[in-house]
Simulated assay, not measured.
Amino acid sequence: MPRRPAPSTPRRTAPLPQEVRIIGGQWRRTRLPVADRPGLRPTPDRVRETLFNWLGQDLGGWQVIDVFAGTGALGFEAASRGAAEVLMVEQDAALAAGLRGLKDKLKADAVRVQLGDGVAALNAQAPGSADLVLLDPPFDAAALFAPALAAAARTVRADGFVYLEAPQAWDDAALAESGLRLHRHLKAGAVHAHLLRRSA
């Protein structure tokens, strides 16, 4: 049986940035505030830039689900690049309220913010309904990774993508039970960024 990566909680070696910036698209250089909330860890600029280089700069017409939305950096980046619909799911009520405020400020009509459990929200979607599922769970919530990956594999269409940010690398053996396979991987500091596809 393949061994999953051991849970790991990287120490925060530097304070959180007070804001992050959208890198591309119609809201390029727009600043997003970063709240000081437990488990919040915005995706670094370098990682986001690499992810959207992998995906292509134009996400026109895509259906996107940002499951552990946090600051909204990933979801707003997708919307900025033309995604038709971006569902942001966030369990922290204060963070969800902040996301709604940003949606209104940007007049981001394609964005919908939902307060609640990310895995449950994924399981409530129609199978094969998303072009891209963004998974960036809190790194200290190791129990979330496997169910989130399985729910994402069910929700994404056959030629769609799942993005996973994690404290450890996930290879095809570790991903086997989820129904996903590794397409691209990047390590940046304590972050392992994975672009995944549905297994054949």
Score class of each variant (00 low, 15 high):
I23M: 06
G82S: 12
A146K: 09
L134W: 00
D109W: 13
A96E: 06
A188D: 02
K103F: 13
N123Y: 03
D109Q: 15
V133E: 01
R154E: 14
V64H: 02
R37H: 06
R184F: 03
E165K: 09
D58E: 12
I23D: 02
A200E: 15
Q18Y: 07
G39L: 08
P44Q: 01
Q125S: 10
V67T: 05
A190Y: 01
W27Y: 01
R21G: 03
V34T: 07
A130N: 07
L40D: 02
E90Q: 13
R197K: 14
L175Q: 01
D66W: 01
V191M: 05
A130Y: 00
P5G: 11
R198I: 13
P5W: 00
A174R: 00
P42R: 00
Q114Y: 06
Q18A: 15
N123F: 06
G61V: 07
V119H: 12
G179P: 04
A150L: 13
G61K: 03
Y163A: 10
K187A: 13
A120R: 15
Q57P: 15
T43E: 05
A97V: 14
D66A: 10
A110N: 10
H194P: 13
A152I: 10
H192Q: 07
E49R: 04
E77P: 04
L135K: 06
P44K: 00
P127N: 12
G189N: 13
R11F: 04
L180I: 06
L182Y: 00
A120E: 15
W54D: 06
T9I: 15
A6R: 08
R181T: 13
A96S: 12
P10V: 08
G25W: 00
N53Y: 05
N123W: 09
V34A: 10
V47C: 07
A141C: 09
L182M: 05
P44Y: 00
G70F: 03
V47K: 04
L40G: 08
P44C: 03
E19Q: 15
A141P: 03
A78P: 09
G24R: 06
L95C: 14
F68I: 06
L55F: 02
L16M: 06
P147E: 07
Q91F: 11
A83Y: 01
H194I: 02
G75Q: 07
G179F: 02
A120Y: 08
L74C: 09
D45E: 12
H194S: 07
F52R: 08
A78H: 08
A126V: 12
V64G: 11
D92Q: 13
P127E: 14
L186N: 00
Q26V: 13
E77N: 09
H183R: 10
T9E: 11
F145M: 11
R46W: 01
A176H: 04
A126M: 11
A166F: 04
E85W: 15
R37V: 12
A174K: 00
F161P: 05
L102D: 08
L149W: 04
A143T: 05
L51M: 12
D136V: 03
P127F: 07
V133I: 12
E49W: 01
G25V: 09
R184H: 02
A169N: 09
P5A: 10
R48V: 02
E85A: 15
A169D: 09
P10N: 02
R181W: 05
P7C: 09
